[in-house]
Design a binder for these strands. Structure first.
Lengths: 155, 155
DNA sequence: CCGATTTACATGCATTTGCATGTACTGCAC
DNA sequence: GTGCAGTACATGCAAATGCATGTAAATCGG
């Protein structure tokens, strides 16, 4: 009854092994990245918030939208943003059309720090990924992970 | 001077975008997995330790080897294992040939809990991954992530 | 064999995190 | 409009985490 592939592996098992491998690769790469000097005075999650804000076309982003990108609870993100605000890296503003919402934006100092760390970070990534996979393989990995993410149920 | 691909993207940038996509996919999948009912009484990191032990052929695993698999500092893993031991899920033993080392093993109760959670977990994974990618795509994603992980510098 | 360095793990302590809850606002039913 | 459920964010508090450091054992250089 259970459908099996040519290699005798069930579909469920293939999915589990695929996720396991993706997860382990992420752990292994992340471990090496976060121990590097790029993150000496900013945690990876904190950098990630600055990075996401730097990519935002309007410059302003809602806190709840930010939360989708980060593996943090809503309350933890709220306090992480507190810290960034106290360090003068981001700015809060009440949302215009929603009295409950909060908009976030990089300060000039925040944007500068993001760029500085970002340069190092990108270099570190390339040093890990480029020797491991050919350009074609990287493009395929990019395509597959993007497709996976896009296909997930909204929540 | 900077080498560019046909699409005008530098090798460094391709590597960075590939990692970014892999990372976001991991965050998105993990967010959905850990909010599910499978992890109602065991954190994901804690389950991960039980899972890794369950895969170990000899049954016993060194603490430092375990640490390579998990995105946790050495001290945090030490205390995580404390908690698992207090709950009767794992057992510590001094390493035979190295007086500094500690060997870990699942208790019967730990093995049973791992299997129980594992069943739910695998089902959750399949529900997310299988509809998103074809079997061939999953195999390719598995291959690429495995190659990436295997190609990383030891540390 | 002896001292110096390194490795494996544990622990004190400050910081970060998540859960539960609180507050304020929105939107919907009527 | 009024009441009521739902959403967005903040906060109290207990638990988890990381850094720095401690302890003990292994390894290395002489």
């Amino acid at each position: 009854m259970t459908p099996r592939t040519a290699s005798g592996t069930s579909a469920v098992r293939l999915a589990a092994e695929t996720w396991e491998s993706l997860f382990r690769a992420q752990v292994a790469v992340m471990r090496r990245l976060q121990s590097g000097p790029a993150f000496r005075d900013l945690a990876v999650n904190e950098y990630d918030v600055l990075f996401t804000l730097s990519r935002c076309p309007s410059g302003w982003l809602r806190l709840n939208e930010l939360n989708d990108n980060v593996l943090l609870s809503q309350s933890s993100l709220s306090r992480l943003v507190d810290r960034l605000e106290k360090r003068g890296l981001v700015e809060r503003q009440p949302a215009p059309n929603d009295g409950r919402g909060v908009l976030l934006k990089l300060t000039e100092e925040g944007a500068a720090l993001q760029k500085e760390i970002g340069r190092e970070h990108v270099r570190d990534i390339a040093e890990l990924v480029a020797p491991a996979l050919t350009a074609a393989e990287q493009r395929e990995l990019l395509r597959l992970t993007e497709k996976l993410r896009a296909s997930l149920p909204s929540r």
